[in-house]
């Protein structure tokens, strides 16, 4: 194995690593915000919002991520502006993941026993107060493992950025392997970079899940 590939091209690997981390973190924040809104839509009593939330989740979950990214990459030029590969990729990732996060949040809220809502309401708290102080704190604990899993997926999925020249780890890996002609070695190092990010997260999710199981 040519460890010289890692040392000679360390700068390029790190540039890609930075792109992957930045895109994943930004997409996580974005997808959480969109996902939370959609989750609220899905459980409200307003029918139009509920319908929109369901349509959004069903549509996004049934089309490939790559397609979502292409839409943000090629689409804007029809409207007279452009999003570069990194931006289009990150927005695409956020939109795609938000559908899954919305479902995770919704499931978390539904898992809190209904009686609690009724009890808090009858003790004089408003709906919003009940949500903020009673339901959400409990739901968040339940939602953390699936959110963690979605973050792991996000990191892995950010590799599609390479297909729109999005300056991520896979993108720079291609540059490296076309110069070294050593596909195997180059990509083993790429795999290690991904594992550095994903393995600790997987481990964290497992630990949290155990803690939850012990509690309930």
């Amino acid at each position: 194995m040519e460890f010289s590939i890692l040392t000679n091209y360390f700068g390029l690997y790190m540039e890609g690593f930075y792109g992957t981390v930045l895109s994943s973190v930004l997409a996580l924040i974005g997808s959480f915000l969109i996902g939370a809104v959609i989750a609220v839509f899905r459980i409200t009593t307003v029918r139009a919002l509920r319908w929109f939330g369901t349509a959004y989740v069903e549509f996004i979950r049934n089309i490939p991520l790559l397609l979502v990214v292409y839409i943000f990459y090629y689409g804007p030029s029809a409207l007279g502006f452009t999003l570069d590969g990194f931006k289009a990729g990150t927005i695409g990732l956020a939109v795609y993941t938000s559908a899954f996060i919305a479902e995770a949040i919704r499931a978390g809220i539904m898992a809190v026993p209904k009686g609690q809502m009724e009890a808090s309401r009858s003790s004089g708290l408003s709906y919003i107060q009940t949500m903020l102080h009673i339901i959400l704190p409990q739901a968040i604990k339940l939602v953390i493992p699936p959110l963690g899993n979605q973050f792991i997926n996000l990191i892995k999925n950010s590799s599609v950025l390479t297909l729109v020249a999005g300056l991520d780890l896979m993108y720079f890996a291609d540059s490296i392997s076309t110069e070294t002609y050593r596909t195997f070695d180059t990509y083993i190092f790429v795999a290690l970079f991904y594992l550095v990010l994903t393995l600790p997260l997987s481990y964290g999710v497992r630990v949290w899940e155990r803690r939850l199981q012990r509690k309930y």
Binding site: Y73, Y74, P76, S77, T82, D84, G85, L163, V164, A165, Y171, D174, S175
Partner: peptide, 18 residues
Amino acid sequence: VLEFDNYQDAFSALKAGQ
């Protein structure tokens, strides 16, 4: 320099104003 998997994607990107 932005690199694509093939020329077709690169040309599509040029047309998209990338």
